[in-house]
């Protein structure tokens, strides 16, 4: 029964065209970034950087490097956007359209309904990250030969990994990226449980994420970083560190799980006392 109801939520989610906006935009964005990277000076500059540090650029200018390069900013900027868009729609759009009233004329509890919706939103978020990783790699394969992974973040990280190690880290990063996407979806879902329009829920969630991002990047607030949401949303970047800071990952994961539980519990509390009217 639970699985049938979850299937329903997925039918509803994946039956809508707007659900695919995220998938389509990611594909387009990846293709554009990759093409510019491949056919501009960027790839040559990266190759030079590798060679200046004693590495063979032909080994590391690879699909893994290209996919990591393209997905880095997409995961920071676009992923929250699409997570928030779907999370805001889950409850608020049904309330706005009037279908929520149709559902709640049936003997399903509000908590169960929210749990199903949250689960569907989480599955969407995971699929989005999975697609981001797979399509990044596939697009990368059209431009580069298979090789190791080069990860460079000015002032913070310079790391090279053998193909096998690189692939594991790339896959792991996308698994943790799902956690970040689920968290933003959950935040937007929480706002959607109030009596607000879906757009309002999405904007509220994004505002919090972007505010956190801005504050985190103000140099004067460096020592406050662990207090910002985006600091923990970026836990996936730790997979490209050498060595991997498992403690830092565990801390962020624990905090994000707590936040998700809070968002869900808050959503349930708000939604349970709400009057659902036409």
């Amino acid at each position: 029964m639970l699985l049938l109801q979850l299937r329903n939520e997925l039918w509803k989610l994946f039956g809508k065209k707007r659900t695919y906006i995220g998938f389509t935009m990611f594909l387009l964005a990846q293709a554009v970034i990759l093409l510019v990277f491949r056919f501009s000076r960027a790839s040559a500059d990266m190759g030079r950087l590798l060679e200046n540090n004693g590495y063979d650029m032909t080994q590391f200018l690879s699909p893994l490097t290209a996919a990591t390069f393209t997905n880095f900013w997409l995961a920071i900027i676009l992923l929250p956007l699409f997570g928030a868009l779907v999370g805001g729609d889950l409850v608020a759009k049904e309330a706005e359209d009037g279908t929520l009233r149709l559902i709640l004329a049936r003997p399903i509890s509000r908590v169960r309904l929210l749990a199903l919706k949250w689960a569907a939103g989480s599955i969407f978020s995971m699929l989005l990250c999975l697609m981001l990783g797979v399509s990044g790699l596939l697009l990368g394969l059209t431009c580069f030969d298979w090789g190791g992974l080069f990860y460079f973040f000015p002032g913070e990280s310079f790391a090279v990994f053998e193909p096998r190690d690189g692939l594991v880290r790339f896959a792991g990063a996308h698994v943790f990226m799902s956690m970040a996407a689920i968290s933003v979806m959950g935040l937007s879902f929480f706002f959607g449980c109030f009596n607000v329009k879906p757009a309002a829920a999405t904007i509220l969630a994004l505002s919090i994420v972007f505010l956190s991002f801005i504050m985190m990047n103000i140099p004067w607030f460096n020592d406050l970083k662990p207090w910002f949401l985006t600091y923990h949303l970026n836990l996936w970047q730790q997979l490209y560190g050498e060595p991997i800071q498992w403690g830092r990952i565990g801390e962020s994961l624990f905090l994000l799980l707590g936040m998700n539980a809070t968002f869900f519990a808050g959503g349930v509390a708000v939604f349970s006392v709400r009057d659902i009217k036409s």
């Binding site: 109801q5 329903n8 509803k12 039956g15 809508k16 279908t99 149709l102």
Partner: peptide, 20 residues
Amino acid sequence: IFYDYLSGRRNLEILATYTA
């Protein structure tokens, strides 16, 4: 009001499963 983007049958399947 229904899920306009789905078929009538799918709407019925979805709504029925909330009961049994």
